[in-house]
Amino acid sequence: MSPYAATGIIMVVIGLYAAMTRKNLLRVVLGLSIMARGVPLIFIVGGMQTGTMSAAQSIVITIIVIEAVTVAVALSLVVAAYNHNKTLSITALRRLKG
């Protein structure tokens, strides 16, 4: 496995870890963002290995667009949550359960 691919997978794991442990909403969103940066790396590696770099590039650009939209929506929801109870803590998001 090339170091680039390893880096990509490590970034995905970091993002997942952030979602599991961070209590701050913004950090969770940052975790998502890191995850979404890791996966394109693997596409790039794949493009290099299989000699289809042009395709890989277009894929990566599309992923970045999707990721940007997702993060924008996420941030707007975070703002809405903050406006409701003036905190970014995840523990405030526990009213719906059972």
């Binding site: 997978i9 693997i42 596409f43 794949g46 493009g47 290995q49 299989t50 000699g51």
Partner: peptide, 12 residues
């Protein structure tokens, strides 16, 4: 998507 990327890097 990670799964798709792995498939892609094996087959192109």
């Amino acid at each position: 998507l990670l799964g798709i990327a792995i498939v892609y890097s094996y087959t192109g």
